[in-house]
């Protein structure tokens, strides 16, 4: 774990105080404070509608906050907008590349806008396409790219001139595991060259893999901050997932597990599955024995990392709102 004192001494890439954004009466971002050291990866973790994108857009000068102040590399977000824009780059949640153009043309456009001459922009586009493993698709329209290729191109576009700070909004949502790994490699390579990254995600394991520090956001507020091990520790050491052969026995199983383990038991959307927090992984065996003693037959069980849903459940005492898995939990 990093030393907290040390972090205080590091120069900050982002310093935000009490950022607020309202849409009508709705407070999409409701007082967010950030101090993100340079050269690190910071993760925003939160369900749909938490305010992740809105916060990011404010920090990238795309949205005007209704309250609060922020500094990017010491430049005031409002008074020194051009200086801020010169150090940041944004890869939005919804691909910000032009679908109608080819990979080369997209990168050439950005390079031209950054001041490259026509021939230099062509060279830079080729170099980046090669680096991001897109050389074979250089001449193809982005419309015909796979999701993973599109994401890589999108990030490459942000790297035409390497920014000091990169915003990555849900870089891997909707990608298969292989593409996700590629993106993770890219992010790590970026950070190793000195770029600071602020990324948003809905997946705990992604934040876990990439982020030095994480902020869990819900309803426009940061409800927890820390390293991923700190967050997980707050949730308990692990989660026991159980799947019953007979769905009708679920209520009884829930009863049994919660008395045995003494922790809340969460009903999944799958009618025959349930999960429970473990304060100690040794309790898992005890719990399973208890079920079999009561003739409740188990078809599957696993010990897992807590999911975002479970982190939320613990941090807020209620399931993540708008999360697709929540219906079961509300029963």
């Amino acid at each position: 774990m990093e030393n907290v004192m040390n972090q205080k001494d590091q120069p900050l890439a982002i310093e935000a105080v009490d950022l607020v954004k309202r849409f009508g009466k709705h407070r999409a971002v409701d007082g967010i404070n950030l101090a993100i050291p340079q050269g690190t990866v910071y993760g925003f973790l939160g369900p749909n509608g938490a305010g992740k994108t809105t916060t990011m857009k404010m920090l990238a000068t795309l949205l005007k906050p209704d309250g609060g102040t922020a500094k990017i590399f010491g430049h005031d977000l409002f008074k020194e907008q051009d200086a801020v824009r010169a150090c940041v780059s944004l890869t939005g949640q919804f691909a910000s590349v032009d679908e109608d153009l080819s990979g080369t043309e997209n990168l050439m456009l950005i390079a031209r806008l950054m001041g490259y001459t026509r021939s230099d922009s062509k060279d830079r586009a080729a170099e980046l396409l090669d680096a991001f493993d897109l050389q074979d698709a250089a001449k193809r329209q982005v419309k015909k790219y796979s999701g993973g290729m599109r994401r890589r191109l999108d990030i490459a576009a942000s790297m035409v001139v390497r920014p000091k700070l990169l915003f990555l909004d849900e870089p891997t949502t909707g990608l298969d595991p292989r593409s996700r790994n590629q993106i993770w490699d890219i992010v790590r390579a970026l950070v190793s060259t000195g770029t600071t990254v602020l990324l948003t995600t809905q997946y705990l394991d992604e934040a876990d893999q990439l982020a030095d520090r994480i902020a869990v956001i819900d309803h426009g507020k940061i409800i927890a901050k820390g390293t991923s091990s700190e967050l997980k520790a707050s949730v308990g050491t692990g989660i026991l997932h159980v799947r019953l052969i007979d769905a009708a026995a679920r209520a009884e199983a829930q009863q049994l597990l919660s008395t045995t383990l003494g922790t809340p038991v969460h009903l999944s959307s799958d009618p025959s599955a349930l999960s429970a927090q473990l304060s100690d992984t040794d309790h898992a065996a005890k719990a399973l024995t208890m079920l079999s003693d009561h003739q409740i037959r188990v078809s599957e069980f696993s010990l897992g990392q807590p999911s975002l849903d479970e982190v939320f459940l613990t941090l807020t005492g209620k399931p993540a709102e708008d999360s697709p898995q929540k219906e079961g939990a509300l029963e």
């Binding site: 031209r112 806008l113 950054m114 001041g115 490259y116 001459t117 230099d120 830079r124 170099e127 980046l128 090669d130 680096a131 991001f132 790297m159 001139v161 390497r162 490699d185 890219i186 390579a189 970026l190 190793s192 060259t193 770029t195």
Partner: peptide, 17 residues
């Protein structure tokens, strides 16, 4: 990854257009 690092490190910022 090495290619990528090279592409990211070796560049100078062109003048503002």
């Amino acid at each position: 990854l090495n290619k990528m690092r090279a592409a990211l490190v070796d560049h100078k910022r062109p003048p503002h257009p």
